[in-house]
Design a protein around this nucleic acid. Structure first.
Lengths: 244, 244
DNA sequence: CGCTGAGTTGACCATAGTCAAGCACTGTGG
DNA sequence: CCACAGTGCTTGACTATGGTCAACTCAGCG
């Protein structure tokens, strides 16, 4: 059984090592956990009200739908990530959140977060850092879709996901478990599902990565990284300047 | 001659009507203006240090370069926009800023902004709102590139730009001045410059928009909006919840 | 045992990229 | 004043990347 803060604290520790007391403040900030089953909607079109969530277990995606029915997935959230935090701090573009797998989320009320922030500023800092990484990832996603070919895009995406998961202790240089369907991959990368399938085959046949049956397996990490021009600088950045 | 706050205050007034005193605080927050000529670099790869800029006159673009030399333009800034504010608050993905036209910027030191914030919280709120809009635009940009065809993308972009400019009092339903080259348009929309040229011709021949000689002219705003599925909801949103 | 949904594959088509050439305008130096 | 180089725009011809349609497999499930 996972403690409600296990994933988050692991994630935040990538930025600064929080004290016992700060971790305690963190866990008191999180309200009761709620279970949502795969496919369930968590937030519809950004209407989250005055609360955010911490994802404790499972995968979530944020996406936008176009009038015609096309879907663009903005980002995936993995355990330890915040949901709707940006929309609480900043109010972002209205997008929806949906559970990709069965999911466990802890609710955070704006009020509770504010008081946690004033009693533990280093905690506030590390959470801001986490938001900051999300930001950077959206920009990188834009670059990925705008200026890379289908095969480079896909490679880049699988590598980025791997790096994120490793930061919360999931998977290793060999690979990681990945519950995404090819349709979701397609809507993330701005491609058709059919083409994603072809691209995955190519990657497999060139012995770079294998993504099958819910597992991503790196066959040649070095060549894959070169193909994707992957640089993970934007994932572990130096954190907010203003607050330090 | 433009006062140093003319554009910014016009922009912020779209969110709340600032008082004389708040406008005064705003103008004292802004340091000496600096002139940068077209093509000049303003911030290189996010290394802005502890300061941001307010764009008083001219156009700026933020972009990322890929190792191979490809360029993805993330966003354009027009008068009244902040430069590097997000990277000061949050530290975003490392991208560079370059002047598109000759440009006038006012420097803002982190320290000065903080004290302005504490003496005028409503000002802080409206600036956060402005950051929030930038956010929303990056997400919308992602959707645009990921899920729309070349012609829809281009139409959407020209409409968005028009809406932004109108909010600072530039242009009208007929059109607006636009100093962007077709190369810049291409790198914004994830297309080749040559294809952008073809798309612009199509839009012109179908009597939807004309973009020539630095002027965008809407020929049929209604049909263009339909083609692009343009909804400007994300541009004038309700603003930060937390602070209100 | 027949659904359903995800994944595969092939054939064909269309959108967008590449290459190449030429035009118009501007600013510079002879 | 003219020749020029440079830059941005334009067009055509050809190519290729990725989309669409259709059919089939396979696993899970009532």
């Amino acid at each position: 059984m996972v403690s409600s803060t296990a994933a988050v604290s692991k994630r935040l520790k990538n930025y600064i090592d929080l004290t016992e007391q700060e971790l305690d403040t963190l866990s008191r900030m999180i309200g009761p956990s709620r279970m949502i089953s795969a496919g369930g909607e968590i937030v519809h079109e950004g209407q989250s009200g005055h609360r955010a969530f911490i994802l404790q277990d499972g995968w979530v995606m944020s996406y936008k739908l176009l009038p015609e029915g096309a879907r663009q997935i903005i980002d995936f959230q993995v355990p330890g990530d915040f949901l709707g935090l940006r929309s609480l701090l900043l109010r972002t573009s209205d997008h929806s959140f949906e559970a990709v797998t069965d999911v466990l989320v802890g609710e955070v009320k704006a009020q509770d977060m504010l008081s946690a922030f004033s009693s533990a500023p280093r905690l506030a800092m590390s959470i801001l850092w986490s938001v900051s990484c999300d930001e950077a990832m959206v920009v990188e996603h834009l670059v990925n879709i705008g200026r890379r070919s289908a095969i480079e895009r896909t490679a880049h995406f699988l590598l980025e996901l791997g790096a994120r998961l490793r930061s919360i202790g999931v998977g290793d240089a060999q690979g990681y478990p990945c519950p995404l369907s090819q349709y979701q991959l397609a809507d993330t990368l701005g491609l058709s599902a059919i083409h994603i399938n072809r691209v995955l085959r190519q990657l497999r046949e060139q012995n770079l990565v294998t993504f099958q049956k819910g597992v991503v397996q790196f066959n040649d990490l070095k060549k894959l990284t070169e193909l994707a021009e992957f640089e993970m600088g934007y994932l572990d950045q130096v954190g907010p300047v203003l607050v330090s």
